[in-house]
Deep mutational scan, measured.
Amino acid sequence: GIQEIVAMSPELDTYSITKRVKEVLTDNNLGQRLFGESILGLTQGSVSDLLSRPKPWHKLSLKGREPFVRMQLWLNDPHNVEKLRDMKK
Rank of each mutant, 00 (worst) to 15 (best):
K22F: 03
R70A: 06
K19N: 10
L51F: 15
G1W: 09
N76I: 05
S61K: 04
V6R: 06
Q3D: 14
T43K: 14
L50I: 09
K63V: 12
K88G: 09
I5A: 12
L12C: 03
E23T: 11
G31K: 12
K19L: 09
M71R: 01
R33Y: 06
S52L: 11
I5C: 06
L42Q: 07
V69N: 03
S52P: 11
A7T: 09
K19F: 04
K89G: 09
D77V: 03
M71A: 03
K63C: 05
Q3V: 06
K59Y: 09
W74K: 01
K89F: 10
L12T: 03
L84R: 02
E11W: 12
S48N: 09
M87W: 11
F35Q: 00
T14S: 01
I39E: 04
S61I: 01
Q3F: 05
S48H: 15
K88R: 08
E4S: 11
T18V: 13
S48F: 10
R65K: 06
V6T: 10
M71N: 02
K59T: 13
K63N: 08
V21S: 00
E66Q: 06
F68L: 00
D49W: 07
H58D: 09
L30M: 07
K88W: 04
G36H: 05
I17T: 05
T43Q: 12
K63F: 13
R85W: 11
L62Y: 06
E23G: 07
S9R: 05
N29W: 03
L12S: 02
L34C: 07
I2V: 08
I39M: 00
I2K: 07
L30Y: 03
G1L: 08
N29A: 08
Q32R: 08
D49V: 09
P10T: 09
V21H: 00
F35H: 00
N80R: 12
E23Q: 13
H58A: 14
M71W: 03
K19G: 05
G1A: 06
K63W: 01
T43W: 04
L50K: 06
G31Q: 11
T26W: 09
L62H: 08
L75P: 02
P10N: 07
L12Y: 04
L73I: 14
K22Y: 05
F35C: 02
T43R: 11
K19Y: 05
L40T: 01
E11L: 04
N28L: 03
K88D: 12
P54W: 03
R33L: 10
W74R: 02
P54I: 03
I5Y: 09
L12A: 03
G1P: 07
T14I: 02
K59V: 08
M71H: 01
Y15T: 13
R33I: 10
V21N: 03
K88I: 07
P67W: 05
L25Y: 02
G36D: 03
W74N: 01
L34G: 06
Q32W: 14
D86G: 13
P56V: 01
E66W: 04
N29I: 03
E66I: 11
D27T: 15
V47D: 05
T43G: 12
I2G: 06
K63Q: 13
R65W: 00
S46Q: 15
Q72F: 10
M71Y: 00
K59L: 15
N76S: 11
V69K: 05
G31D: 15
N80E: 05
I2D: 11
E66F: 01
V24H: 06
T26P: 00
R20C: 05
L62P: 15
K88M: 06
K88N: 13
M8Y: 10
Q32C: 11
H58L: 05
I2T: 07
G1C: 12
G31L: 02
P56F: 02
S16M: 14
N76C: 09
S9M: 06
T26E: 09
L62T: 14
V69A: 04
D27H: 10
G41K: 11
G31A: 10
D13F: 01
Y15M: 15
E82T: 12
M8W: 08
N29M: 13
D27M: 13
K63I: 15
H79P: 00
D13Q: 00
P10L: 07
L73Y: 09
D49P: 09
P67F: 03
